[in-house]
Computed example of a mutant assay.
Amino acid sequence: MNQPLGPVSFKDVAVDFTQDEWQQLDPEQKTTYRDVMLENYSHLVSVGCHIIKPEVITKLEKGEEPWIVGGEFLLQSYPA
């Protein structure tokens, strides 16, 4: 029988890209990534997950490219 592993965090459903990896995606892949990441975040918030908005979501909402900055992934600085 499967036991629950605990609550899901944004890190569990998110993907980080380096700038080089991001540049290798075609425009349709970038759009799909944006849509899925924003939808995942929205779903977590809608079921009551109290999380600080990750920088990657803020960047995607502004239409900015979501790669890592200064050697740290955008997701790592935010607690679940």
Rank of each mutant, 00 (worst) to 15 (best):
V45T: 13
E39C: 08
Q29D: 13
V13Y: 01
G48F: 06
N2K: 09
T58C: 07
Y41F: 15
L5Y: 07
T58H: 08
E21C: 05
S42I: 01
V45Y: 00
D35Q: 12
I51H: 00
F17C: 10
I68L: 08
V15A: 05
M1Q: 14
E64M: 04
N2G: 07
G63R: 06
Y33Q: 06
H43T: 14
L60M: 13
Y41M: 04
S42N: 13
D20S: 12
A80K: 00
V8C: 10
E72R: 03
C49W: 03
V8F: 06
L75D: 12
Q24P: 00
L74W: 03
Q3D: 15
G63W: 06
P66H: 01
W22K: 00
E65T: 13
L75H: 09
Q19P: 09
K11L: 11
T58R: 11
P27M: 07
E39F: 09
L60Y: 07
K59S: 08
K30N: 10
V56P: 02
L38F: 06
D20H: 07
P79W: 04
V13H: 02
K11G: 15
G70N: 14
L5T: 11
E64Y: 03
Y33M: 04
V15W: 07
T31G: 01
G70Q: 08
S46G: 11
Q19M: 06
K62Y: 08
P27K: 02
N40S: 14
P4V: 05
L44I: 15
E39D: 15
F10M: 05
Y41A: 04
V47N: 03
V36Y: 05
E72V: 12
L25K: 03
E28D: 13
D20K: 09
D26K: 01
V36A: 09
P79I: 04
N40A: 15
H50F: 03
D35A: 12
L75V: 12
L75W: 02
Q24V: 05
F73G: 15
Y33D: 11
E21A: 11
P4C: 05
E61N: 11
I57L: 02
V47A: 02
H50Y: 03
S77D: 14
T18I: 12
Q76N: 12
Q23D: 15
N40V: 09
Q29G: 13
V69E: 15
G6M: 12
L5E: 14
I57E: 02
A80I: 01
Y33V: 08
Y41C: 00
L74M: 02
G48K: 00
G71R: 05
Q3R: 08
S77V: 06
Q19K: 12
I51V: 15
P54F: 03
Y33I: 07
E64K: 02
D12V: 08
E72F: 08
V45H: 00
Q29P: 00
Q24D: 09
G48Q: 08
S42D: 15
S77H: 05
L44D: 03
T32A: 13
W67M: 08
V8Q: 01
D16H: 07
W22E: 10
M1S: 15
A14L: 04
E21H: 00
V13N: 01
M1V: 13
I52Q: 13
